[in-house]
């Protein structure tokens, strides 16, 4: 690369920056760590559906409360199930609920937020007050209330997680659309014969997605913790099933047998960290 090429400067809304140099390379380790970690977790969780060292929820594959060993890497719980197998198998539940919940919240929140931001008016004001009401509750408390109202189970937990999450997407999408709405390319799109909805969905929304995507990754790490918290309290997924939060709950009275709570806890930590790293990496790219 010659010096003229690398020094080519581009002027735009992002200020002045070199064209051919990729400055994000320096920050890329967060992206690769996030991708690697989430890739590992997803792979293991899917693999667990086909193979685990022991049947995950079967009691008595070993003696109760065996410490970690070569035969049982993470030890066994009080009914003698293999914790390593159970942690593997639980991954799909936690990751699945998190991803589907985040996807639902993303779609619903973005759709409503961009519409109300674009059209404004009374509906916008009412929707904003609504999101404020939802967000004024501590998320876990509201989650507990909703789950105990509608009952536990996979689908209900997913829906509750989406309800907890969508106001964040709604407000972000609304703010993005509000700032894009006054850009001249919105006026230009009108002149080019677009109706109002196609100005919104063909021009403004696609230009607003980046911050929403990085928010969703960070949001996913929060959702993962909410999901396992609900499991821990014992009102989400049915207790005793392969879910990291409820595994920790099962080990609550086993403080001296640390491995019962430690390994599912590490799993939750890794999942939250994977999403967080991804979100951080996306946010960095967006700034550049």
């Amino acid at each position: 690369m010659t010096s003229t090429a690398t020094n080519a400067v581009q002027r735009g809304r992002g200020g002045i920056r070199p064209l051919n140099i990729k400055p994000r390379r320096t920050m890329n380790w967060t992206l690769w760590a996030g991708l690697g970690l989430s890739g590992l977790l997803v792979t293991v969780s899917i693999a667990a559906q086909f193979w685990t060292p022991y049947t995950p929820t079967k009691p008595g594959v070993g003696d109760p409360l065996m410490a970690p060993s070569a035969a049982h890497l993470f030890g066994t719980d009080k009914v003698g199930s293999d914790i390593f197998s159970k942690v593997m198998a639980a991954g799909l539940t936690d990751i699945g609920i998190t991803l589907i919940g985040v996807a639902l919240a993303f779609v619903i929140g973005t759709l409503i937020g961009s519409l109300t931001g674009f059209f404004g008016g009374a509906v916008d004001a009412i929707v904003m007050r609504g999101t404020e009401i939802i967000q004024s509750f501590p998320a876990l408390l509201l989650g507990m209330l909703l789950v105990s109202a509608v009952g536990g189970g996979l689908i209900n937990v997913v829906v509750v997680v989406a309800i907890l999450g969508f106001p964040g997407y709604l407000r972000l999408a609304r703010a993005e659309i509000l700032s894009k709405k006054s850009m001249e390319y919105a006026d230009a799109a009108v002149l080019m014969g677009n109706g109002r909805l196609s100005v919104l969905f063909k021009h403004l929304l696609p230009n607003s997605l980046k911050p929403l995507v990085s928010f969703s990754a960070i949001n996913a790490s929060w959702v993962a913790i909410i999901v396992s918290s609900l499991g821990f309290i014992g009102i989400g997924i049915e207790p005793g099933s392969a879910e990291w939060g409820s595994m920790i709950a099962a080990g609550r009275d086993q403080i001296s047998n640390w491995w019962v709570t430690f390994f599912p806890g590490v799993a939750i930590l890794l999942l939250a960290m994977a999403f967080y790293l991804l979100g951080d990496a996306f946010a960095d790219r967006e700034v550049q």
Binding site: G12, Y185, A188, L191, G193, H203, P206
Partner: peptide, 29 residues
């Protein structure tokens, strides 16, 4: 009516959708 009266904007940066290619900009209208 928009077909009859058009406008060339002062700021070419703000008036072009940053995601559209030249071809898309022209094909849209």
């Amino acid at each position: 009516d928009h077909r009859r009266v058009q406008l060339v904007f002062q700021d070419p940066n703000g008036s072009l959708d940053p995601r559209q290619t030249v071809r898309q900009v022209l094909e849209e209208p």
